[in-house]
Amino acid sequence: MLRHPLLDQPYQPTLQAWIACFTGYHMPEALDAELSRYDPNDPDDREQLIRRFCLAREDLRENFRHRQQRVLALQAAVADTHYDFDKVWEPPEDDYEDPQWPSRWPERVIDSRDFFQRLLRAARELWHDDLVRADLPSLKQCQEIAERDHGSRDWLFSVDNPEAWKALFGLAATPYELDTPGPQLHGERLHLALSGELPRQLLPASWNSPQGPGHCRFMLDIQGISELTMSGTRFDGPMRTQLTRLNPGYYVRLKIGFDCVIECVALSVSIADVEGR
Rank of each mutant, 00 (worst) to 15 (best):
P5D: 00
D8A: 13
Q9C: 14
Q12W: 08
T14R: 00
I19D: 00
C21H: 07
T23V: 06
Y25Q: 02
Y25A: 10
Y25K: 11
P28Q: 03
P28I: 01
L35H: 01
S36L: 11
D45H: 13
Q48N: 15
A56V: 07
E58Y: 08
L60V: 14
A73V: 10
V78F: 03
F85P: 14
V88S: 04
P99G: 03
P99R: 04
P99N: 06
S103K: 13
R104M: 10
R108L: 03
A123T: 06
W127N: 03
H128T: 11
R133S: 11
A134K: 11
D135Q: 15
D135F: 08
S138A: 11
C142T: 04
Q143G: 15
L156Y: 00
F157E: 05
V159Y: 01
V159W: 01
D160I: 06
E163C: 04
G170D: 00
Y176Q: 15
L178V: 11
D179E: 14
P181V: 09
G182Y: 09
P183T: 02
P183S: 04
H186E: 12
L198W: 03
P199N: 05
Q201M: 14
W207T: 05
G212T: 02
F218C: 11
M219C: 12
L220T: 06
D221F: 10
D221M: 12
I222M: 08
G224V: 07
E227H: 07
L228H: 07
S231Y: 03
S231G: 12
D236F: 15
N247A: 11
V252Y: 02
G257S: 01
G257M: 08
D259M: 01
S268G: 07
I271K: 09
D273Y: 01
G276H: 04
R277L: 13
